[in-house]
Design a binder for these strands. Structure first.
Lengths: 337, 337
DNA sequence: CTGTTAGCGCCTTCAT
DNA sequence: ATGAAGGCGCTAACAG
């Protein structure tokens, strides 16, 4: 390994000068600088970033924890994170927790061992183990799309899920729907509560009932979308509109409805949430809520960087705007059902 | 920051003993160990992994370069990489190059500055800048799904693209198709050549012509799938089968064909490549080539780890098996066209 | 089995 | 403007 010393010898200067040439070039004579640069190139020298990190105590890396890497929605956020991090000279350490607490703990602990300076969490769990909880209190951390459950108030970035599902429910009610089914994601989360509350608030305002057994689901996956439809249809209640908690669920739902010979939206309207790329290209194109994923990622980096730099936070909740995309998977209710 | 010294004082031992307790516990008395562990817990001590890295010269991280994070196909591979890396105690640094050479160079250089011990590249370009090329010669590097263009023979992991497109072309020829269109991805790549060669070899064996202007495309995206169809239809040649170089392209193609009032597969058969998750759930479910993405990721880690550990490689090409998934987007040719 | 000591590669006062 | 020297937190010989 070629170190700073190799360069010293080649350039006939001290380590300090080489170091300065790289970090504070204005403190070095043009002539010396030139000699040093030449020596650096000749030696093929690369500063060992680990060694500098040890002094500063900063690794210049951000740990990102995802519950499921394969969800395209998260991807888009990660892309935003990655872009923003790169701009700040930070690199992104990726951890796919797969919902496994042990993995989550391991990854989170990387911040504790200085491998990363901050943590961006795309889940609602407190990612540290009990042993680490105390240490974690001072960790720069932010959650996106969820709120970390902890006494400590970690900042979070999300959209107004309540309002968003109100918008989409209103959209369906506007089409005359009054027989709803809901296919949710993971139940233990703030998102679940907010979204359901949004739906319920509109329906109760309109005097439309929503029976508990018309709320099914439990996971943000295509398979749960299919299964959800099966469960809903098995209830033998009238059903003309299905609200899905993400687009993957909606894709599974539409697929399953077609299998049962039902047409979307003529027989049943289906709406999603997230606006993943493919949603616009399935048949029929999906009515959904667009989340500003790229901005969410960028915001997350901004917030966690602010903590790392010790700049006091004026607030700890960042609510980004959503928008309702009306496409073809939702439409007027059939007159007779 | 609580360091090893804090623990020393608390436990009344030397730094060496603390270090040993953590790394080589068998060299320490049970009693001492106990005292040390207690002190560690009491102090809330976490070894600074940067500091150890500086000694060993290893960062225990792998850099992964992706041309486009949002492609679900890459995601699956990354997931495989992530799982395998975690098993080896390695963490994954993610770099989305977005096809930008400058970003690629920057990320690749992280291996040079010891932030990562090895590089996994999901693209065909040589990721280092000219300046770094010389240094890069000794870097542990492997490419997945592509072959890095360089004099140095870096190992690669891919499937037999030639054979795979032969299989899919044969599948279509078996259905009686003789009027083909092809929508490719990025043209400057080994994959492009191999896949096209596979198609051509079958067609020429069968005496079926493939006109150059029936080969369109240029990017692995839904949009290029749509655009590709438009271009193909504009040729006004008879067309009954479209081979797409990935599933995203196929999704765009099917979407566009429907817009033009054409039915898939009754009027035109469409096949994809990759088998991304959603392919099975679109309408019609896509006939495609399944790539063992998870295995590819795992294999990549295995190969790069072997280089890092300095174990000599017995070979540098790893060809994984593909399989043809016959779903509903392909079918018999219409009798009259 | 444990402590002492000398660095790892770099940065950073403190002199000069 | 540059050099000498100490130290970041940890590990690994080498003693004891």
């Amino acid at each position: 390994m070629t170190t700073i010393k190799t360069v010293c010898k080649l350039a006939g200067v001290s380590t300090a000068t080489v170091s300065r040439t790289l970090k504070n070039p204005e403190q070095v004579t043009a002539k010396t600088k030139e000699r040093v640069f030449k020596a650096i190139e000749q030696a093929g020298y690369r500063p060992n970033s680990l060694a500098s990190s040890i002094k500063t105590g900063k690794s210049n890396a951000l740990m990102v924890l995802v519950p499921n890497l394969v969800n395209p929605f998260f991807l888009k956020i990660i892309q935003g994170i990655e872009i923003a991090a790169q701009e700040q000279g930070y690199s992104v350490l990726l951890g796919d927790t797969q919902g496994d607490i042990k993995r989550e703990n391991e990854y989170a602990a990387m911040v504790l061992s200085n491998r990363a300076d901050g943590l961006i969490h795309l889940d609602h769990s407190f990612p540290f183990s009990k042993n680490d909880a105390y240490l974690a209190e001072q960790v720069a951390m932010v959650s996106v799309c969820e709120r970390i459950k902890s006494e400590h108030d970690y900042p979070f970035i999300e959209l107004d899920n309540h309002a968003a599902t109100r918008a989409i429910t209103n959209h369906l009610v506007g089409y005359g729907h009054s027989h709803f089914g809901v296919i949710t994601g993971q139940i233990e989360s703030r998102i679940y509560q907010d979204r359901l509350a949004g739906i319920r608030s509109v329906l109760s305002e309109e005097g439309i009932p929503l029976d508990d057994n018309m709320i099914v689901g439990g996971e943000y996956s295509i398979e749960f979308g299919q299964q959800g439809i099966r469960q809903l249809l098995a209830q033998n209640n009238p059903l003309t509109a299905v609200i899905c908690f993400n687009d993957d669920i909606a894709i599974g739902a539409i697929h399953e409805l077609k299998k049962h010979g039902l047409r979307v939206p003529q027989d049943i309207s289906v709406v999603g949430f997230d606006n993943i790329k493919v949603s616009a290209f399935i048949d029929p194109p999906l009515t959904t809520i667009d989340q500003p994923t790229l901005e969410m990622g960028k915001k997350a980096v901004e917030v966690v960087m602010q903590q790392i730099k010790g700049i006091p936070m004026s607030r700890n909740r960042f609510i980004l705007p959503y928008s309702l995309l009306e496409r073809d998977s939702s439409g007027p209710v059939r007159l007779q059902n």
